[in-house]
C-alpha cells in the first residue's frame, strides 16, 4: 500500500511537533516535519503530502493574538497552494495553536455559502481569551458531533487534555452559528462526564455552544483546541492508575482515521 505522507509544519514557537509526529507515525503515516521557511522557499513541497498538520504551541509567541502571525504568513504567501491542497481532496488538521491559525486564515470554517456578516479578511469566527483570562491545562470530555468530518466517528465520546489561554470559540453573528450547525460543521463539543450540558470547567473556556472543534464544508479540514496527540499512550490518561490496563488511549483514533482515509 502506498505511503500516506504527513507534513508537520513547524515554525518559531511550535512545540507539539514531536508528539504530533509520533501520533501520526503510530497511526501508520509517513511523517516529515518541515520549518515554514522551507515551504515558503519552495511551496511545491506541499504537493508531496496528503495530510498537513499544524501542531500546537505558541507560533511567534502568540504575538498580537494566538496564531495570528503564522496565519498572516500563510494568507499572504501560501493561500493558493493551500486551496489547491484542499481542492485535491487532501486533509488538514490544526490542533490548539494550529486550530487558531486555521481560524485566523479563514480556512475554518470556510465558505458557509450564505450571506453572513464578514469581518476583515473574511473571518466570521474566532478563538479568543478564555473566560478565566488565564492559560489552563485540564482534561475535558468531548462528544464527536459531525457526520461529515473524516477525522472522527460520530457519536464517539473522547477524553483529551486542553492547554490554552485563547480557546474560547465565538462567532460574529448568531447566524454564523446556525449555519455551522446546519451544515454539520461542529466537530467536537465539550460535554459533562454524564453527557449533559457543561459549565466551567467542563467547558473550560466559555466557548459558545460548547464548541471545541470545527470542520470545513468538505469535512476534510479539522481544527480543535484539545490535544489528541497527548492521549496516545495508556499512561497519558490522568487516572490511568485507576483504570484497566487494556483501555485504548482516546486520541489515537483521530490520527488513524486520517491516515486510514487514504488507505481505504
Amino acid at each position: 500500500m502506498a505511503d500516506v505522507n504527513v507534513l508537520v509544519l513547524r515554525t518559531a514557537g511550535t512545540n507539539c511537533d514531536r508528539e504530533t509526529i509520533y501520533a501520526f507515525a503510530s497511526a501508520g503515516g509517513k511523517v516529515q516535519a518541515l520549518h515554514i521557511n522551507r515551504v515558503l522557499g519552495n511551496p511545491k513541497l506541499l504537493q508531496d503530502f496528503q495530510i498537513l498538520a499544524l501542531p500546537g504551541g505558541f507560533s511567534y509567541g502568540d504575538d498580537i493574538a494566538a496564531g495570528k502571525i503564522l496565519a498572516n504568513q500563510l494568507l499572504h504567501h501560501l493561500a493558493d497552494q493551500l486551496h489547491e491542497f484542499v481542492e485535491a481532496g487532501k486533509l488538514i488538521i490544526g490542533i490548539c495553536n494550529g486550530f487558531q491559525v486555521l481560524v485566523k486564515t479563514g480556512l475554518l470554517p470556510g465558505n458557509l455559502g450564505q450571506d453572513l456578516p464578514v469581518g476583515g479578511n473574511g473571518q466570521i469566527v474566532t478563538l479568543t481569551n478564555n473566560d478565566s483570562d488565564k492559560f489552563e491545562d485540564r482534561w475535558v470530555h468531548l462528544a464527536a458531533c459531525s457526520k461529515k468530518c473524516v477525522f472522527l466517528q460520530e457519536p464517539q465520546r473522547i477524553y483529551l487534555p486542553i492547554a490554552h489561554g485563547e480557546g474560547k470559540f465565538v462567532v460574529s453573528d448568531p447566524a454564523v452559528l446556525e449555519a455551522l450547525q446546519k451544515s454539520d460543521q461542529v466537530a467536537f463539543r465539550y460535554i459533562n462526564p454524564d453527557g449533559s450540558e457543561p459549565s466551567y470547567p467542563d467547558n473550560p473556556n466559555g466557548s459558545i455552544d460548547h464548541i471545541a472543534g470545527i470542520t470545513d464544508p468538505t469535512g476534510r479540514i479539522l481544527g480543535l483546541m484539545p490535544h489528541p496527540e497527548r492521549h496516545t499512550h495508556r499512561t497519558h490518561h490522568p487516572r490511568w492508575t485507576r483504570l484497566p490496563a487494556e483501555r485504548q488511549p482516546d486520541g489515537l483514533a483521530i490520527f488513524a482515521n486520517a491516515v486510514g482515509y487514504f488507505k481505504a
Binding site: 507539539c16 501520533a23 485540564r138 487534555p161 497527548r230 499512550h233
Partner: peptide, 23 residues
Amino acid sequence: IIRQYDHEVQGGSAIKPLVGVAN
C-alpha cells in the same frame, strides 16, 4: 498555579502533578 502551567506538552507525562478521581 499548577493548572496555569502546561504540564503535558511533549507528550511524555506519565504521572501528573494533580492526580486522583477528580484530577
